[in-house]
């Protein structure tokens, strides 16, 4: 019972299937979203929508971007559940604590 090595590995493994195409597509999606993010504050200088909506839009985009990076670039999609749990649980906790902190102690930031 060695640590972590179930498979008594032969030196040459069969090559995995390449996902390069998918990664490039993901990259362009992220790129477009970042572009929108950058554009929003510039467009909204004229106060087309209230600041709160702008912030909500930005946070929403940020969350989606983050989720995409985690799922595809960090391979959480399709990987074992344990890894995702170890990482996503703290993220959810931190977000809740931040909400709680600002709601209770810095309400003027809303």
């Amino acid at each position: 019972m060695a640590h972590g090595h179930d498979e008594h590995a032969p030196i040459e493994h069969e090559a995995h299937h390449s996902h390069a195409k998918l990664y490039v597509i993901i990259f362009f999606i992220l790129l477009v979203m970042t572009g929108i993010e950058i554009a929003i504050p510039i467009i909204n200088k004229a106060e087309i929508v209230v600041k709160q909506v702008e912030v909500a839009l930005l946070l929403g985009l940020m969350t989606i971007k983050g989720a995409i990076v985690m799922m595809f670039y960090m391979h959480l999609k399709g990987d074992r559940r344990m890894f995702g749990t170890l990482f996503v649980f703290p993220i959810v906790c931190v977000l809740l604590m931040m909400l709680g902190f600002f709601a209770l102690f810095q309400p003027e930031l809303w």
């Binding site: 040459e12 493994h13 940020m62």
Partner: peptide, 27 residues
């Protein structure tokens, strides 16, 4: 190689995490 890529994957995970933090900081 295809049977031994964990060192690369670990470096990658760290690197993507740093990118993830930038997504947060940037916004």
């Amino acid at each position: 190689n295809a049977g031994n890529y964990m060192a690369v994957e670990l470096g990658g995970l760290y690197w993507h995490f740093v990118d993830l933090v930038w997504v947060l900081i940037f916004t």
